[in-house]
Design a binder for these strands. Structure first.
Lengths: 192, 192
DNA sequence: GTCTATACACCGATAGAC
DNA sequence: GTCTATCGGTGTATAGAC
């Protein structure tokens, strides 16, 4: 094989880095916290991520990208009726955000200075997600323009529900949004 | 009068602090940046805000609280038909977030360690806003339970639209959400 | 691959002159 | 009320032994 198996401690570290970055943001996830959370000393961290914190965050975004593709985007593109595909997405989204109790990494890294560093990856991830949902709606017979608007609404409601649930210290809004999402996305286009 | 007129430089500083905190978050708004943005030296900042950064952020939240009450909450509670009142809110919200180009201070301070510091004020502000919208809908004949759910949806869509617009680097989603908001809030309750 | 030690910049905050 | 100077602490990152 061209690439040998990566040491598992890096994958493991990336998963813990994801938790830190989305909870504390880029600047708030200090090396001290990272070291404590991963159990790796500073030297070990720089061994796995020679370019330092920026490389850690990049690795997290790549990991999330793979996770999203495997668990959300590909299932969304798979066969099956649109309702089931959307319901599957809802289940995965619920797991990703731990029922509304954890922030979104994309939103977290959109803040402050990290916005400039990761803005491209964030934009691409959001766009891919919108496109995937949009295609499901098109498959259900909704015209492309409306499909895209509804897909944007879905992402936007998920993100907003995370903010509101965090602000109110109550995950009910997030749960409710997820529960309503499939029906709302697939409801007949009303005449204007 | 019991209280003399506050020096205007503090008010002025608070307005600039609002911009900094919502752009960079609490930890990202460093004293160096604050000093540059306000034109005040460190000593002057600590003269106006003896308890330092935390007091600066508290002052910002109090300022936002007053601004919200005057520009959004009170008009929402005023006389007039519900549609007009909501339309007025939309206009003010559009100004507050500069057409979708600026983050929400409540969302910004909900991240990282500042969440613990300001969580109460954030929760109260969100709750007041939800209650005010909810009351407008009740005045329009919508039952209390549905009114509250719709009010939460409104806030959540605004917050999510800000996130999405920032992530996509395109304020169209925010504009669209605001434009649709009054009609969506006031539409007849559909039979289940 | 992990350790200890450390370099250097910046953080929030304070002291004292004016 | 603003200035300069500085404190102790912590930030990211690196060097070199093992």
């Amino acid at each position: 094989m061209a690439t040998k198996k990566q040491s598992s401690s890096r994958e493991e570290a990336v998963r813990k880095l994801l938790l830190l970055f989305r909870q504390y943001g880029y600047e708030g996830a200090t090396l001290t916290r990272i070291s404590e959370a991963t159990g790796l000393g500073r030297a070990s961290l720089y061994h796995h991520f020679p370019k330092g914190k920026e490389e850690m965050a990049t690795a997290v975004l790549e990991y999330v990208d793979r996770w999203m593709a495997e668990n959300i985007l590909n299932p969304l593109k798979a066969d099956g009726n649109p309702g089931d595909r959307l319901q599957n997405m809802v289940t995965k989204v619920n797991a990703l955000y731990e029922s509304g109790g954890r922030p979104c990494i994309l939103a977290a890294l959109s803040m402050g200075d990290s916005h400039d560093l990761f803005y491209r990856q964030i934009q691409t991830a959001l766009q891919s997600w919108i496109d995937a949902i949009s295609q499901v709606l098109i498959d259900d017979g909704i015209d492309a323009a409306n499909a895209r608007l509804r897909a944007e609404n879905a992402i936007l409601q998920i993100q907003g529900a995370l903010i509101l649930s965090r602000g109110l210290n109550n995950t009910a809004p997030f749960q409710r949004v997820l529960q309503q999402l499939p029906d709302e996305l697939l409801q007949p286009v009303r005449a204007s």
